[in-house]
Simulated assay, not measured.
Amino acid sequence: MLTVSALELRTRLRDGTAIVIALVVPVTLATLFGLALGGDDPPLRATVGFVDLDGGEFPASVRREVTAAEELKGSVTLRDLASGGEARRALDADEIGAAIIFPAGFTRSVGAGEGGDVTVLTSPRSPLAGVVAGAVVDRISAVVDARTLAVRAALLAGVPGERVKELVERNGAAGPALRLTGDPLAGGKVDLAVYYGSGMAALFAFFVVGASFRSLLTERKLGTLDRMRAGPLAAWVPVAGKAVVGFALAMVSVCATWVSGTLIFGSSWGDPLAVLAVLTAHVLAAAAITMLVAARVKTDAQADGVIMVISFVMAFLGGSLVPLHSLPGVLQAVALLTPNGWTATALAELAGSGAGVAAVMGPIGVLLAIALAAGGLAVLGLRKGMLL
Protein backbone atom coordinates (compact mmCIF):
# COMPACT_ATOMS: atom_id res chain seq x y z
CA MET A 1 0.00 0.00 0.00
CA LEU A 2 2.86 2.36 0.79
CA THR A 3 4.37 1.64 -2.62
CA VAL A 4 1.09 2.41 -4.38
CA SER A 5 0.70 5.58 -2.30
CA ALA A 6 4.24 6.72 -3.05
CA LEU A 7 3.72 6.15 -6.78
CA GLU A 8 0.41 8.05 -6.72
CA LEU A 9 1.98 10.96 -4.83
CA ARG A 10 4.97 11.15 -7.20
CA THR A 11 2.63 11.12 -10.18
CA ARG A 12 0.41 13.86 -8.78
CA LEU A 13 3.38 16.05 -7.86
CA ARG A 14 5.16 15.43 -11.15
CA ASP A 15 2.27 16.55 -13.36
CA GLY A 16 1.52 19.51 -11.09
CA THR A 17 -2.16 18.71 -10.43
CA ALA A 18 -1.66 18.27 -6.71
CA ILE A 19 -0.02 21.66 -6.22
CA VAL A 20 -2.46 23.53 -8.46
CA ILE A 21 -5.72 21.96 -7.25
CA ALA A 22 -4.76 21.48 -3.62
CA LEU A 23 -2.91 24.72 -2.95
CA VAL A 24 -2.75 27.38 -5.66
CA VAL A 25 -6.39 27.57 -6.75
CA PRO A 26 -8.21 27.34 -3.38
CA VAL A 27 -5.83 29.73 -1.62
CA THR A 28 -5.96 32.22 -4.53
CA LEU A 29 -9.76 32.14 -4.78
CA ALA A 30 -10.20 32.42 -1.01
CA THR A 31 -7.87 35.43 -1.01
CA LEU A 32 -9.65 37.13 -3.93
CA PHE A 33 -13.10 36.55 -2.38
CA GLY A 34 -11.84 37.82 0.96
CA LEU A 35 -10.34 40.98 -0.54
CA ALA A 36 -13.41 41.73 -2.65
CA LEU A 37 -16.12 40.82 -0.17
CA GLY A 38 -14.40 40.60 3.20
CA GLY A 39 -15.14 42.55 6.34
CA ASP A 40 -17.72 42.07 9.02
CA ASP A 41 -20.74 40.09 8.06
CA PRO A 42 -23.77 42.33 7.47
CA PRO A 43 -25.90 42.86 10.61
CA LEU A 44 -28.08 39.88 11.32
CA ARG A 45 -31.51 39.86 12.90
CA ALA A 46 -32.39 37.62 15.79
CA THR A 47 -35.30 37.12 18.15
CA VAL A 48 -34.66 36.28 21.81
CA GLY A 49 -37.48 34.80 23.85
CA PHE A 50 -38.08 36.38 27.28
CA VAL A 51 -39.85 34.33 29.94
CA ASP A 52 -40.56 36.22 33.19
CA LEU A 53 -41.99 33.83 35.77
CA ASP A 54 -40.77 36.12 38.56
CA GLY A 55 -42.62 39.37 37.85
CA GLY A 56 -40.11 41.30 39.96
CA GLU A 57 -37.84 44.27 39.42
CA PHE A 58 -34.79 42.30 38.34
CA PRO A 59 -36.24 40.81 35.10
CA ALA A 60 -37.86 44.21 34.41
CA SER A 61 -34.46 45.93 34.62
CA VAL A 62 -32.98 43.36 32.25
CA ARG A 63 -35.75 44.03 29.76
CA ARG A 64 -35.19 47.81 29.99
CA GLU A 65 -31.48 47.45 29.43
CA VAL A 66 -31.78 45.14 26.43
CA THR A 67 -34.41 47.26 24.71
CA ALA A 68 -32.42 50.46 25.38
CA ALA A 69 -29.03 49.14 24.21
CA GLU A 70 -27.97 51.03 21.09
CA GLU A 71 -25.89 48.09 19.86
CA LEU A 72 -28.97 45.86 19.72
CA LYS A 73 -31.41 48.21 18.03
CA GLY A 74 -32.51 46.94 14.65
CA SER A 75 -30.83 43.59 15.19
CA VAL A 76 -32.36 41.94 18.26
CA THR A 77 -36.02 41.70 19.20
CA LEU A 78 -37.35 40.47 22.55
CA ARG A 79 -40.40 38.23 22.40
CA ASP A 80 -42.44 37.62 25.55
CA LEU A 81 -43.31 33.98 26.17
CA ALA A 82 -45.48 32.55 28.89
CA SER A 83 -43.44 29.54 29.99
CA GLY A 84 -40.27 27.56 29.51
CA GLY A 85 -42.17 24.93 27.54
CA GLU A 86 -43.45 27.56 25.13
CA ALA A 87 -39.90 28.88 24.75
CA ARG A 88 -38.59 25.42 23.89
CA ARG A 89 -41.33 24.88 21.32
CA ALA A 90 -40.60 28.27 19.74
CA LEU A 91 -36.89 27.45 19.66
CA ASP A 92 -37.50 24.08 18.00
CA ALA A 93 -39.72 25.76 15.41
CA ASP A 94 -37.01 28.41 14.70
CA GLU A 95 -39.42 31.18 15.76
CA ILE A 96 -36.74 32.43 18.17
CA GLY A 97 -32.98 31.96 18.22
CA ALA A 98 -32.50 31.88 22.00
CA ALA A 99 -34.46 32.33 25.22
CA ILE A 100 -33.83 33.71 28.71
CA ILE A 101 -36.01 32.26 31.48
CA PHE A 102 -36.34 33.89 34.93
CA PRO A 103 -37.83 31.48 37.51
CA ALA A 104 -40.45 32.45 40.04
CA GLY A 105 -38.98 34.09 43.16
CA PHE A 106 -35.78 35.18 41.41
CA THR A 107 -35.89 38.83 42.59
CA ARG A 108 -36.64 37.78 46.19
CA SER A 109 -33.83 35.22 46.17
CA VAL A 110 -31.29 37.73 44.86
CA GLY A 111 -32.43 40.36 47.35
CA ALA A 112 -31.90 37.90 50.20
CA GLY A 113 -28.35 37.21 49.03
CA GLU A 114 -29.16 33.64 48.04
CA GLY A 115 -28.35 34.06 44.36
CA GLY A 116 -30.51 32.58 41.65
CA ASP A 117 -30.47 30.55 38.46
CA VAL A 118 -31.39 31.90 35.03
CA THR A 119 -32.02 29.39 32.27
CA VAL A 120 -30.66 30.13 28.80
CA LEU A 121 -31.79 28.19 25.74
CA THR A 122 -29.79 28.52 22.52
CA SER A 123 -29.79 27.04 19.05
CA PRO A 124 -26.78 26.46 16.75
CA ARG A 125 -28.97 27.70 13.90
CA SER A 126 -28.95 31.24 15.34
CA PRO A 127 -25.52 31.98 16.83
CA LEU A 128 -26.21 35.73 17.03
CA ALA A 129 -29.20 35.26 19.35
CA GLY A 130 -27.12 32.90 21.49
CA VAL A 131 -24.32 35.46 21.76
CA VAL A 132 -26.75 38.19 22.86
CA ALA A 133 -28.44 35.93 25.42
CA GLY A 134 -25.04 34.88 26.72
CA ALA A 135 -23.88 38.50 27.08
CA VAL A 136 -27.02 39.40 29.00
CA VAL A 137 -26.74 36.45 31.36
CA ASP A 138 -23.04 37.13 31.97
CA ARG A 139 -23.98 40.59 33.24
CA ILE A 140 -26.84 39.15 35.29
CA SER A 141 -24.34 36.77 36.91
CA ALA A 142 -22.06 39.66 37.83
CA VAL A 143 -24.94 41.56 39.46
CA VAL A 144 -26.18 38.51 41.37
CA ASP A 145 -22.69 37.58 42.57
CA ALA A 146 -22.02 41.10 43.81
CA ARG A 147 -25.34 41.25 45.67
CA THR A 148 -24.85 37.81 47.20
CA LEU A 149 -21.34 38.69 48.39
CA ALA A 150 -22.52 41.97 49.93
CA VAL A 151 -25.39 40.33 51.83
CA ARG A 152 -23.20 37.53 53.16
CA ALA A 153 -20.54 39.99 54.26
CA ALA A 154 -23.16 42.02 56.14
CA LEU A 155 -24.49 38.92 57.89
CA LEU A 156 -20.98 37.80 58.88
CA ALA A 157 -20.42 41.27 60.34
CA GLY A 158 -23.36 40.71 62.68
CA VAL A 159 -25.93 42.95 60.99
CA PRO A 160 -29.46 41.80 61.92
CA GLY A 161 -31.22 40.02 59.08
CA GLU A 162 -34.05 42.52 58.84
CA ARG A 163 -31.56 45.38 58.34
CA VAL A 164 -29.30 43.69 55.78
CA LYS A 165 -31.25 44.74 52.70
CA GLU A 166 -31.53 48.33 53.86
CA LEU A 167 -27.83 48.49 54.76
CA VAL A 168 -26.68 46.94 51.51
CA GLU A 169 -28.77 49.24 49.35
CA ARG A 170 -28.01 52.39 51.35
CA ASN A 171 -24.27 51.80 50.97
CA GLY A 172 -24.47 51.10 47.25
CA ALA A 173 -23.46 47.49 47.65
CA ALA A 174 -26.50 46.00 46.00
CA GLY A 175 -24.34 45.15 43.05
CA PRO A 176 -23.52 47.10 39.90
CA ALA A 177 -26.37 48.21 37.66
CA LEU A 178 -26.97 45.88 34.77
CA ARG A 179 -25.03 47.18 31.77
CA LEU A 180 -24.07 45.45 28.53
CA THR A 181 -20.40 46.31 28.14
CA GLY A 182 -18.73 46.47 24.75
CA ASP A 183 -20.58 45.23 21.70
CA PRO A 184 -22.87 42.30 22.59
CA LEU A 185 -23.03 41.37 18.90
CA ALA A 186 -19.28 41.10 18.42
CA GLY A 187 -19.21 37.34 18.88
CA GLY A 188 -22.05 36.83 16.44
CA LYS A 189 -20.31 38.60 13.58
CA VAL A 190 -18.28 36.47 11.22
CA ASP A 191 -15.78 38.01 8.82
CA LEU A 192 -16.85 37.20 5.27
CA ALA A 193 -13.24 36.21 4.60
CA VAL A 194 -13.87 33.27 6.93
CA TYR A 195 -17.04 32.29 5.04
CA TYR A 196 -15.33 32.31 1.66
CA GLY A 197 -12.06 30.85 2.89
CA SER A 198 -13.80 27.89 4.50
CA GLY A 199 -16.08 27.63 1.45
CA MET A 200 -13.15 27.27 -0.93
CA ALA A 201 -11.55 24.73 1.40
CA ALA A 202 -14.77 22.67 1.45
CA LEU A 203 -15.24 22.90 -2.33
CA PHE A 204 -11.73 21.91 -3.37
CA ALA A 205 -11.59 19.03 -0.94
CA PHE A 206 -13.89 17.23 -3.41
CA PHE A 207 -11.62 17.96 -6.36
CA VAL A 208 -8.44 16.91 -4.55
CA VAL A 209 -9.68 13.53 -3.31
CA GLY A 210 -11.64 13.02 -6.53
CA ALA A 211 -8.46 13.14 -8.58
CA SER A 212 -7.05 10.11 -6.76
CA PHE A 213 -10.18 7.99 -7.16
CA ARG A 214 -10.49 9.11 -10.79
CA SER A 215 -7.00 7.71 -11.40
CA LEU A 216 -8.34 4.26 -10.44
CA LEU A 217 -10.48 4.36 -13.58
CA THR A 218 -7.48 5.50 -15.60
CA GLU A 219 -5.45 2.61 -14.23
CA ARG A 220 -8.21 0.20 -15.21
CA LYS A 221 -8.41 1.64 -18.75
CA LEU A 222 -4.63 1.38 -19.23
CA GLY A 223 -4.52 -2.15 -17.83
CA THR A 224 -2.24 -1.16 -14.95
CA LEU A 225 -4.83 -2.16 -12.37
CA ASP A 226 -5.07 -5.68 -13.83
CA ARG A 227 -1.29 -6.06 -13.74
CA MET A 228 -1.21 -4.96 -10.08
CA ARG A 229 -3.99 -7.38 -9.22
CA ALA A 230 -2.11 -10.20 -10.95
CA GLY A 231 0.68 -9.80 -8.42
CA PRO A 232 0.68 -10.84 -4.76
CA LEU A 233 -1.49 -7.92 -3.68
CA ALA A 234 -4.74 -7.88 -1.76
CA ALA A 235 -7.58 -6.49 -3.88
CA TRP A 236 -8.06 -3.47 -1.63
CA VAL A 237 -4.43 -2.29 -1.76
CA PRO A 238 -4.62 -0.11 -4.93
CA VAL A 239 -7.78 1.61 -3.70
CA ALA A 240 -6.43 2.15 -0.19
CA GLY A 241 -3.09 3.43 -1.49
CA LYS A 242 -4.73 6.06 -3.64
CA ALA A 243 -7.25 6.95 -0.93
CA VAL A 244 -4.44 7.68 1.53
CA VAL A 245 -2.85 10.13 -0.89
CA GLY A 246 -6.16 11.76 -1.75
CA PHE A 247 -7.06 12.22 1.92
CA ALA A 248 -3.59 13.55 2.82
CA LEU A 249 -3.54 16.06 -0.05
CA ALA A 250 -7.07 17.21 0.77
CA MET A 251 -6.09 17.80 4.40
CA VAL A 252 -3.07 19.80 3.23
CA SER A 253 -5.38 21.80 0.96
CA VAL A 254 -8.00 22.69 3.59
CA CYS A 255 -5.36 23.45 6.23
CA ALA A 256 -3.36 25.63 3.82
CA THR A 257 -6.51 27.60 2.98
CA TRP A 258 -7.29 27.96 6.69
CA VAL A 259 -3.77 29.12 7.59
CA SER A 260 -3.47 31.49 4.63
CA GLY A 261 -6.80 33.13 5.47
CA THR A 262 -5.71 33.63 9.06
CA LEU A 263 -2.35 35.10 8.07
CA ILE A 264 -3.60 37.31 5.24
CA PHE A 265 -6.76 38.70 6.83
CA GLY A 266 -5.98 38.24 10.50
CA SER A 267 -9.40 36.62 11.01
CA SER A 268 -9.94 33.64 13.27
CA TRP A 269 -11.86 30.52 12.25
CA GLY A 270 -12.28 29.64 15.91
CA ASP A 271 -10.76 27.10 18.28
CA PRO A 272 -7.96 25.38 16.29
CA LEU A 273 -8.69 21.88 17.60
CA ALA A 274 -12.39 22.22 16.80
CA VAL A 275 -11.70 23.64 13.32
CA LEU A 276 -9.30 20.78 12.56
CA ALA A 277 -11.89 18.22 13.70
CA VAL A 278 -14.56 19.75 11.44
CA LEU A 279 -12.22 19.93 8.44
CA THR A 280 -11.10 16.33 8.95
CA ALA A 281 -14.71 15.11 9.10
CA HIS A 282 -15.53 17.10 5.94
CA VAL A 283 -12.60 15.62 4.03
CA LEU A 284 -13.67 12.11 5.06
CA ALA A 285 -17.18 12.81 3.78
CA ALA A 286 -15.83 14.28 0.53
CA ALA A 287 -13.54 11.28 0.05
CA ALA A 288 -16.39 8.82 0.56
CA ILE A 289 -18.69 10.66 -1.88
CA THR A 290 -16.06 10.89 -4.63
CA MET A 291 -15.16 7.22 -4.10
CA LEU A 292 -18.85 6.42 -4.55
CA VAL A 293 -18.81 8.34 -7.85
CA ALA A 294 -15.76 6.39 -9.03
CA ALA A 295 -17.56 3.16 -8.15
CA ARG A 296 -20.64 4.06 -10.21
CA VAL A 297 -19.26 5.59 -13.43
CA LYS A 298 -17.54 3.75 -16.28
CA THR A 299 -14.75 6.09 -17.41
CA ASP A 300 -12.43 8.69 -15.96
CA ALA A 301 -14.04 11.37 -18.16
CA GLN A 302 -17.44 10.58 -16.65
CA ALA A 303 -15.90 10.77 -13.19
CA ASP A 304 -14.53 14.25 -13.93
CA GLY A 305 -17.92 15.52 -15.04
CA VAL A 306 -19.94 13.98 -12.22
CA ILE A 307 -17.50 15.06 -9.51
CA MET A 308 -17.49 18.62 -10.85
CA VAL A 309 -21.30 18.81 -10.92
CA ILE A 310 -21.67 17.30 -7.44
CA SER A 311 -18.95 19.56 -6.01
CA PHE A 312 -20.45 22.81 -7.28
CA VAL A 313 -24.04 21.88 -6.46
CA MET A 314 -23.05 20.99 -2.90
CA ALA A 315 -20.91 24.13 -2.67
CA PHE A 316 -23.80 26.39 -3.70
CA LEU A 317 -26.49 24.68 -1.65
CA GLY A 318 -24.18 24.15 1.31
CA GLY A 319 -23.00 27.73 1.80
CA SER A 320 -19.52 27.40 0.30
CA LEU A 321 -20.17 30.00 -2.41
CA VAL A 322 -22.98 32.00 -0.77
CA PRO A 323 -23.23 32.38 3.05
CA LEU A 324 -26.05 30.25 4.44
CA HIS A 325 -27.89 33.17 6.02
CA SER A 326 -28.17 34.81 2.57
CA LEU A 327 -30.04 31.82 1.14
CA PRO A 328 -33.86 31.56 1.19
CA GLY A 329 -35.34 29.56 4.05
CA VAL A 330 -36.04 26.53 1.85
CA LEU A 331 -32.44 26.38 0.61
CA GLN A 332 -31.15 26.76 4.16
CA ALA A 333 -33.03 23.57 5.01
CA VAL A 334 -31.74 21.85 1.85
CA ALA A 335 -28.18 22.84 2.83
CA LEU A 336 -28.33 20.37 5.71
CA LEU A 337 -28.56 17.56 3.16
CA THR A 338 -24.99 18.33 2.06
CA PRO A 339 -21.68 17.92 3.89
CA ASN A 340 -20.82 21.50 2.91
CA GLY A 341 -23.89 22.76 4.78
CA TRP A 342 -22.90 21.04 8.00
CA THR A 343 -19.28 22.18 7.59
CA ALA A 344 -20.36 25.80 6.99
CA THR A 345 -22.72 25.67 9.98
CA ALA A 346 -20.03 24.28 12.27
CA LEU A 347 -17.32 26.73 11.17
CA ALA A 348 -19.71 29.70 11.46
CA GLU A 349 -20.53 28.57 15.00
CA LEU A 350 -16.84 28.33 15.89
CA ALA A 351 -15.90 31.67 14.32
CA GLY A 352 -18.95 33.48 15.72
CA SER A 353 -19.00 32.22 19.29
CA GLY A 354 -15.47 31.06 20.05
CA ALA A 355 -16.86 27.72 21.22
CA GLY A 356 -14.87 24.49 21.39
CA VAL A 357 -15.23 20.98 20.00
CA ALA A 358 -18.26 20.20 22.17
CA ALA A 359 -20.33 22.85 20.38
CA VAL A 360 -19.83 21.20 16.96
CA MET A 361 -20.06 17.53 17.87
CA GLY A 362 -23.46 17.37 16.14
CA PRO A 363 -22.18 18.53 12.71
CA ILE A 364 -19.06 16.39 13.05
CA GLY A 365 -21.24 13.36 13.81
CA VAL A 366 -23.40 14.02 10.73
CA LEU A 367 -20.31 14.40 8.52
CA LEU A 368 -18.90 11.11 9.80
CA ALA A 369 -22.27 9.43 9.22
CA ILE A 370 -22.24 10.70 5.62
CA ALA A 371 -18.71 9.37 5.20
CA LEU A 372 -19.70 5.98 6.60
CA ALA A 373 -22.84 5.65 4.46
CA ALA A 374 -21.24 6.83 1.21
CA GLY A 375 -18.08 4.83 1.90
CA GLY A 376 -20.06 1.64 2.48
CA LEU A 377 -21.98 2.08 -0.77
CA ALA A 378 -18.71 2.85 -2.56
CA VAL A 379 -17.08 -0.36 -1.37
CA LEU A 380 -20.06 -2.38 -2.62
CA GLY A 381 -19.88 -0.57 -5.96
CA LEU A 382 -16.14 -1.09 -6.30
CA ARG A 383 -16.57 -4.81 -5.70
CA LYS A 384 -19.30 -5.00 -8.29
CA GLY A 385 -17.20 -2.99 -10.74
CA MET A 386 -14.25 -5.36 -10.25
CA LEU A 387 -12.00 -2.65 -8.84
CA LEU A 388 -11.77 -4.62 -5.60
Score class of each variant (00 low, 15 high):
residue 290 T to Y: 09
residue 122 T to C: 09
residue 55 G to T: 01
residue 216 L to P: 13
residue 273 L to M: 08
residue 334 V to S: 10
residue 321 L to H: 07
residue 147 R to M: 13
residue 280 T to H: 01
residue 114 E to V: 15
residue 42 P to W: 12
residue 53 L to D: 11
residue 74 G to A: 03
residue 317 L to Q: 08
residue 224 T to P: 02
residue 23 L to Y: 05
residue 133 A to Q: 06
residue 258 W to H: 03
residue 88 R to V: 14
residue 110 V to A: 06
residue 212 S to E: 02
residue 44 L to W: 04
residue 306 V to A: 02
residue 335 A to H: 09
residue 304 D to Q: 15
residue 185 L to M: 04
residue 18 A to Q: 00
residue 343 T to G: 03
residue 298 K to F: 01
residue 305 G to W: 05
residue 155 L to C: 09
residue 132 V to R: 09
residue 80 D to Y: 00
residue 180 L to E: 04
residue 197 G to M: 00
residue 151 V to I: 14
residue 301 A to W: 04
residue 279 L to W: 07
residue 90 A to T: 07
residue 300 D to T: 01
residue 111 G to D: 08
residue 127 P to N: 11
residue 110 V to N: 03
residue 130 G to Q: 15
residue 39 G to Q: 07
residue 58 F to D: 10
residue 283 V to W: 05
residue 336 L to E: 15
residue 44 L to V: 08
residue 85 G to P: 00
residue 307 I to P: 10
residue 272 P to D: 03
residue 268 S to H: 05
residue 362 G to R: 15
residue 241 G to A: 05
residue 371 A to M: 00
residue 315 A to R: 06
residue 166 E to D: 12
residue 226 D to Y: 08
residue 298 K to Q: 01
residue 110 V to L: 06
residue 199 G to P: 00
residue 121 L to I: 13
residue 181 T to C: 05
residue 54 D to W: 08
residue 144 V to A: 09
residue 154 A to Y: 05
residue 77 T to P: 02
residue 192 L to I: 04
residue 335 A to C: 08
residue 342 W to H: 15
residue 263 L to P: 10
residue 179 R to V: 15
residue 355 A to H: 09
residue 247 F to T: 01
residue 254 V to M: 04
residue 383 R to E: 15
residue 91 L to F: 11
residue 164 V to D: 10
residue 342 W to T: 13
residue 364 I to H: 08
residue 267 S to V: 15
residue 188 G to Q: 01
residue 299 T to I: 03
residue 312 F to V: 15
residue 319 G to H: 02
residue 368 L to S: 13
residue 320 S to V: 08
residue 23 L to F: 09
residue 358 A to G: 11
residue 368 L to R: 02
residue 179 R to F: 09
residue 95 E to R: 14
residue 28 T to R: 07
residue 307 I to T: 14
residue 281 A to R: 05
